[in-house]
Nucleic acid binder design. Structure first.
Length: 419
RNA sequence: GGAGAGAUGGCUGAGCGGUUGAAAGCACCGGUCUUGAAAACCGGCAAAGGGGCAACUCUUUCCUGGGUUCGAAUCCCAGUCUCUCCGCCA
């Protein structure tokens, strides 16, 4: 969320920056409401002052007057509350501003490739897709998931289930032992306010799975990513500057409705309602966001280097970035069956955007209270890593070689093949 | 599910209906002292919002929402959450 005080300083410049994100925000309405709101605040404060003075004076002859003041104060407060909530409604739906580094563009076609890394495998046969390989091995079962649950779910079985678990442990170990993240095993449900803090609500409610609870209970949502719950660790806090940077990592299931993606990636496990992901979150001083973003992205690509999977790094254009991000790198892994790169990680700096929503601050050396910077990145999406290993490590006979670094996590298994 | 207790500043924790934005302690910052550090002593230290070029000033905030009152952290009502004990259960 943006700080209205900052917007007010240069309303037109803000509007111009925001236009890069192709949004439909009613600026004149925002401006008008802000002016009106401040007028009402002043009226309100005048009355409050008058009332306060009377009660301080303890002058009985003025008590009746004070009672009258209360009535008009009540009216004005009500009006001001309406203005304020309208203002907040608009504000909470405005996305973050793109950082100047970010190329402007409309959609994913305008993203800019930064580099390609790793060796694309050269097969002397036609590589199969991950779902062909998995189903032939008898270790990916989509039909069974349809029977028990519905579409966009999968049963992962046997050695592939072991591979999935190995990936999770391997990635966690690297981030904990080499990259300085603290391991967290968080709740998988988040409250409404928590979802607001990272920007999933109110605008993207349709993408979230909400849990059905007793009628009057507080609403709860299945996390679409551990980012939500990890970032909100610092919600409503004034942090000690010495505790920064804070770095958290968790491997959790993620739940997404994938509304609006009907017909997209329907085959296989590229796009599922549920998938495992290892997520990194950093909380930093606000001027350290971009450095941390580079660091975090390296933590993500480091995993791919170790797994010896070919990938490329791209920077998202202004129109393709997530709601809370100021700058985002996507990491895409090579998928032989599709003959192209597919997203496997996304690392974003959210500047102070989420911190304003969460009220996360710290004091700098001048004792000024500043909003913190937050970042999040996948390191990596487990399901898609599994896919990438199936496809890139496949052999002509349909077996899968195990990447070197994973063998210790898989009882030194050399390869997965049909029994 | 049954019975109690509680929710106050970065943290711990006081608080008769009227200079209480809120004691005290810790933490933190500055200073004195010291070769340096520690200790001791002195001083400072809430957030959000409004107005002002600024010095500064005003308002709000003691879980949330109502109510009583000229005046509420303090009294009343409702709700949320947390803790303890018992029961049930992973």
């Amino acid at each position: 969320m943006h700080n209205l005080k900052e917007i007010r300083k240069n309303f037109d410049a803000f509007e111009k920056e925001l236009k890069k994100r192709t949004t439909e925000i009613n600026f004149s309405q925002l401006k008008k409401l802000d002016i009106q709101n401040r007028e009402f605040i002043q009226k309100k404060e005048n009355l409050e002052k008058e009332k306060k003075d009377i009660s301080k004076s303890k002058d009985k002859s003025l008590f009746a007057k004070s009672k009258e003041l209360s009535i008009s104060l009540d009216e004005i407060s009500k009006k001001q509350n309406v203005l304020k909530s309208e203002l907040e409604k608009i504000l909470s739906n405005i996305p973050n501003l793109p950082h100047p580094d970010v190329p402007s563009g409309k959609d994913e076609n305008d993203n800019v490739e930064i580099g390609k890394f790793g060796q694309i495998p050269d097969f002397n046969f036609k590589p199969k897709s991950h779902y062909e390989l998995g189903e032939e091995l008898g270790m990916l079962d989509f039909d069974l998931a349809t029977k028990t649950t519905g579409s966009r779910f999968v049963f992962v079985k046997s050695k592939l289930a072991l591979l999935e678990r190995a990936l999770s442990n391997f990635m966690l170990d690297i981030h904990i032992q080499k990259n300085g993240y603290e391991e967290i095993s968080p709740p998988l449900l988040a409250s409404e306010n928590t979802m607001f803090g990272t920007g999933q609500l109110p605008k993207f409610e349709n993408d979230q799975f909400e849990v059905k609870l007793d009628k009057d209970a507080e609403r709860k949502f299945l996390i679409p990513t551990a980012e939500v719950i990890l970032t909100n660790i610092v919600k409503d806090k004034i942090l000690d500057i010495k505790s920064l940077p804070m770095r958290f990592v968790a491997s959790t299931p993620c739940f997404r409705k994938e509304a609006g993606s009907y017909g997209k990636d329907t085959k296989g496990m590229i796009r599922q309602h549920q998938f495992y992901k290892v997520e990194m979150v950093s909380v930093v001083e606000q001027n350290k966001c971009l450095d941390e973003l580079e660091r975090m992205t390296k933590c993500a690509t480091g995993i791919l280097d170790l797994l010896e999977l070919p990938y490329r790094k791209i920077i998202l254009c202004s129109g393709d970035m997530g709601f809370s991000a100021e700058k985002t790198y996507d990491i895409e892994v090579w998928l032989p069956s599709e003959n192209k790169y597919r997203e496997i990680s996304s690392c974003s700096s959210c500047s102070t955007f989420q911190a304003v929503r969460m009220k996360t601050r710290y004091k700098d050396s001048n004792k000024d209270t500043l909003y913190a910077g937050t970042l999040n990145g996948s390191g990596l999406a487990i399901g898609r890593t599994l896919i990438a290993i199936l496809e890139n490590y496949q052999q002509k006979d349909g077996s899968i070689t195990i990447p070197k670094v994973l063998k210790p996590y898989m009882n030194n298994l050399e390869k997965i093949s049909i029994n």
